[in-house]
């Protein structure tokens, strides 16, 4: 890790570990906005990790952003930190300044016409708490993407949540004026970059599952010894750890590709790989973690579910592993068997 990365890792993990208590998580799940947590994140510049230094950001790339996203996933941060980080990056591409407060992302459903927003957008993270939303809308020629920043304070919002009780609201736009708008070259879509967000956050949540499960196996005693001393449990935990490692590598690889290819928008392949791998790891890891924890891990009182319920929602958000795998597999079959290896090694 370089100096910026070390600082980010220390800052993010210390801040999140210190502030995200069980009480905070429970209050957030009950619908309460965590203003204090958000303010502390802003004071430390974490939501602006991808914003250029000239615009008051940290000037980091995805390698840096992934550190913050992983920390957010590890500590189950009940705020739209990832969404705001991504919004800042997208706005900077169009030369639009970053507003104050949490910013969310609108994927499918909304349209930008002559600077006005219309349409119904489902599953918008934290819309009810966000000051603004970033909207992307591919132009018909598919050569560029329209981007708009719109204030949400007067928008019609239908509240909903995912399994982890994180807000996933429906926003109905009816001709609201964009606060700012512009264009980004190439096709940029919220589903793709959202998939990268979730892949990184999932790698953090998976690491926390592993830590919690290994710790529990060392403390819980049955038949006169810690259950982690039994080979049957050891083998399960080993399997869990290999999948956590794989998900982490795939996410890091996607971030490296995003930094390398972001101008051309061609990190799509690596991001798909990361989301597919995180999805598969989540399937296996949540099962093993709960099995090792036994009945106590199935209670609300225990904290394991803050990670597992997130993973069960995140693996489906911004394209499930299956969605991305279909796209990737279809393209590979089109190219044919002989083209597979040259394609894989050219990335």
């Amino acid at each position: 890790m370089n100096e910026l990365q070390t600082i980010l890792s220390d800052t993010a993990n210390r801040l999140l570990a210190g502030r995200i208590t069980r009480k905070v998580l429970e209050a957030a799940e009950a619908g309460e906005w965590q203003a204090g947590l958000w303010q502390a994140l802003e004071e430390n510049g974490l939501p602006r990790v991808l914003v250029p230094e000239s615009d008051g950001g940290a000037g980091g790339g995805w390698a840096e952003a992934s550190i913050v996203l992983k920390a957010a996933g590890r500590h189950a941060a009940p705020v739209p930190l990832g969404e705001t980080i991504l919004a800042g990056w997208l706005l900077a591409k169009a030369g639009i300044g970053m507003p104050d407060g949490p910013v969310t992302l609108v994927g499918a459903g909304a349209m930008i016409e002559k600077g006005k927003i219309s349409g119904k957008a489902p599953g918008v993270p934290y819309a009810r708490h966000a000051s603004h939303a970033v909207i992307l809308h591919a132009k018909p020629d598919a050569q560029s993407t329209k981007i708009a920043l719109v204030a949400l304070k007067d928008a019609a919002i239908e509240e909903d949540v995912n399994l982890a009780r994180q807000p996933r609201d429906t926003v109905v736009f009816s001709g609201e004026e964009a606060a700012e708008s512009g264009e980004i070259p190439g096709l940029v879509d919220v589903k793709l970059w959202g998939a990268l967000l979730r892949a990184c956050e999932m790698s953090g949540a998976l690491s926390s599952l592993l830590e919690q499960t290994v710790q529990y196996a060392g403390e819980r005693k049955q038949f006169g010894k810690p259950i982690g001393k039994f080979q049957a449990i050891q083998q399960q935990l080993a399997v869990l750890s290999t999948h956590v490692a794989a998900a982490n590598v795939a996410a890091a690889h996607a971030c490296a590709a995003a930094d390398k290819y972001s101008e051309k928008g061609s990190a799509r392949f690596e991001i798909a790989v990361a989301k597919i791998r995180a999805d598969e790891a989540a399937n296996l890891a949540t099962g093993i973690a709960h099995q090792v924890h036994g009945a106590i891990g199935f209670t609300y009182e225990h904290s394991l579910h803050f990670a597992t319920r997130r993973l069960w929602s995140w693996r489906a958000e911004f394209g499930s592993g299956r969605d991305w795998a279909k796209e990737l597999g279809h393209a590979a079959i089109e190219r044919g068997g002989a083209a597979l290896w040259p394609f894989v090694t050219a990335r």
Partner: peptide, 18 residues
Amino acid sequence: ADAEIGRLIAELVTLRQM
């Protein structure tokens, strides 16, 4: 089999990086 092939390719890429 598109999705399964996609998963197999994703695993290949991940293992190669590891």
